[in-house]
Amino acid sequence: MPERALLKRLVRPLLALVTIVAIWQLVLTLTGVPRYILPSPMAVGRALIDQRGLLAHHAGITAIEIVAGLIGGILLGLTTALALARFRALRRTLLPLLLISQAIPLFALAPILMLWLGYGLGPKILMAMVIIYFPVASTGYDGLRQTPQGWLDLAQTFGLTRRQRLLKVQLPAALPSLASGLRMAASAAPIGAVIGEWVGSSQGLGYLMLNANARLQIDLMFAALVVLVAFAVLLYFGVDAALRLAMPWHHDRVESEP
């Protein structure tokens, strides 16, 4: 039975994929767009296969940047949320700063990070971290603040310390809110890494796309994009699965459809 259920869950996304490819091909046939503007699905598929070594190398680099950025951003964001919930003085000083920092466009930050950290993996990981940090910190802090009063009353009569209350009551109560932040972070992480690669790099899918574009290897550029999209989708579902494991009491209510 679980195999059939899995099959059933795969049918719809597969159908969506086939539809997209069909529309893509249809647009090409009907409009006659030149191949150097929009390559055919077949050409992109061929590039995926023929250039798999090159793609795999650059994809590996980007994957490291994304995963390292994701882990770093989540840890830092979560720590910030806990610290903000625990210390009033920190709320007063750090919270406005945090909000202002969101007004800085990531693209403007990228060249500065390159200047300081060079062209290696460092600035890309940092870019991914920065883009992930805020949704995690803000949804985490919101969740920690909105613990139902009744549970806090229980904590009070149990005589919990503030630390126990934060970790045993407020943190699990914040998980559903934090989860939406983590899902957002997972879908944003590749953006940070790729922007970093565009601004300056010699490796990674973002670099490969710019390079292929300059050499008019449009099919390779699209192949790199396909790999990047696959990454983003995998990452989202990976985070989603991890969250389900972390919250077993949520069953499949969210997912099950009538």
């Binding site: 009744g150 549970w151 009353d153 229980l154 009070q156 005589g159 109560a173 919250m247 009491w249």
Partner: peptide, 15 residues
Amino acid sequence: GRVAWMAQQDLLVPW
């Protein structure tokens, strides 16, 4: 430390 509290809501934690 000697008081137990019971409210109108059951206050069960889902986790």
